[in-house]
Design a protein around this nucleic acid. Structure first.
Lengths: 205, 205
DNA sequence: CTTGACAGCTAATTTAAATTAGCCTATAAT
DNA sequence: ATTATAGGCTAATTTAAATTAGCTGTCAAG
């Protein structure tokens, strides 16, 4: 990783921990192992570092599509996978995706930074919303909708069913971001959630 | 409201919009209608204003007990109320509580400020968690548990049932905080959520 | 009626972070 | 081999916000 990238990387770490305004260019420089003025050889100013992070974040988000997608971008294929999967292995898959989103370095820091900075900037709020609300609900809604169409799950309202599936995941993710020591507890609850979801909406019936 | 209170009030508004570090004491003073140095007649420094807000917030939170509680502090009584209530009136109650939490001036500003500032300070994170996770789940868990005991609702796992009830409310609240123009949409979804919850867990069965 | 303290003001002062100036060295391309 | 450039440094400089100093008017208590 070159210096320019390392600056962005360390800046993201710091911004996600303390927020833009509480991070000094000197802090970033120190982490990178250079002096503050040297940063200006790479970026016009502090704001430009922030902007580069956002741009990078958008780039990566576009690559990935919705959060908690399964194969990554094709709900049709994913629904087929689910269809033949036991409840237990579905739970395992759900948990490992949860852990991925919780721990993956970029994902995690982006998410925390967005949480902190979202009110400064209307645009960041909508990035956050798209990433953690609209995209996951849309993707998962598609997936669950297909399982309903195949008679594997039953519901009158797929949208609400999707909310019932995803909202607990979202909430537990925000819990763990704030109090990482509660991860174990969250995993337990999440497991019970998946199991009960499956029961309620019909798989094991 | 005296000047000291007005300072706290305006500061809370600004902190909830921009975060502590992005608010200047001059901004607060201007809103109050005085000059920055005059603030120091009331508070030792900027941090003291922030601390006073937190103290006030804790005071009010203690008064109120969990979020989205019903009568306010006695799940036993609330459960009796629910028991005799039609699905429609339960939905109306749910919606009006949601709107209360969304719009109530203090509640809303506290919540936004906590969201922004929670990562600066471990203590704030736990205030947030208590207020928006532990307390509501505990209160509502008690409430729903009683309805289960009375055979009005059915479930094998009250904790997960409570999560299914509350997580969508929490998530939709975070949506509306970020994109207030989506309130109408959120209310629709929330209504469908309550209805489906009632159906799933047995009331109308 | 007069005094003292409360709450405001303007004009410094302090502090500290961001940025710029200008110099140095290594290295890669001509 | 020479030179241009990239990327680093130290030492200013700029900027701006927080805080302090110290003055003033009002009003309530004695």
């Amino acid at each position: 990783m070159n210096t320019k990238q390392r600056i962005m990387d360390e800046a993201l770490t710091l911004f996600s921990e303390k927020g833009y305004a509480n991070v000094f260019v000197g802090d970033i420089a120190e982490r990178v192992g250079i002096k503050a003025p040297s940063l200006y050889k790479h970026y016009k100013n502090k704001q430009a570092i922030f902007d580069a992070i956002i741009e990078e974040m958008n780039r990566r988000f576009e690559e990935k599509a919705g959060m908690l997608h399964i194969a990554g971008n094709d709900a049709r294929k994913d629904a087929v996978i689910y269809q033949d999967m036991s409840e237990e292995s579905m739970i395992q898959l759900g948990i490992s995706l949860f852990k991925y989103y919780l721990h993956d370095d970029y994902t995690k820091r982006f998410r925390k930074m967005l949480t902190i900075e979202q009110f400064h900037d209307k645009e960041l709020a909508s990035v956050y919303m798209k990433q953690y609300y609209d995209d996951p609900l849309s993707y998962q809604g598609m997936l669950l909708g297909m399982l309903v169409a195949q008679g594997i799950l039953q519901t009158e309202n797929v949208q609400v069913m999707t909310l019932h599936f995803y909202a607990p995941i979202y909430m537990l993710l925000t819990v763990c971001d704030r109090e990482p020591e509660r991860e174990e507890e969250a995993i337990q609850i999440l497991t019970a959630h998946f199991r009960q979801f499956d029961r309620i909406y019909g798989r094991t019936k």
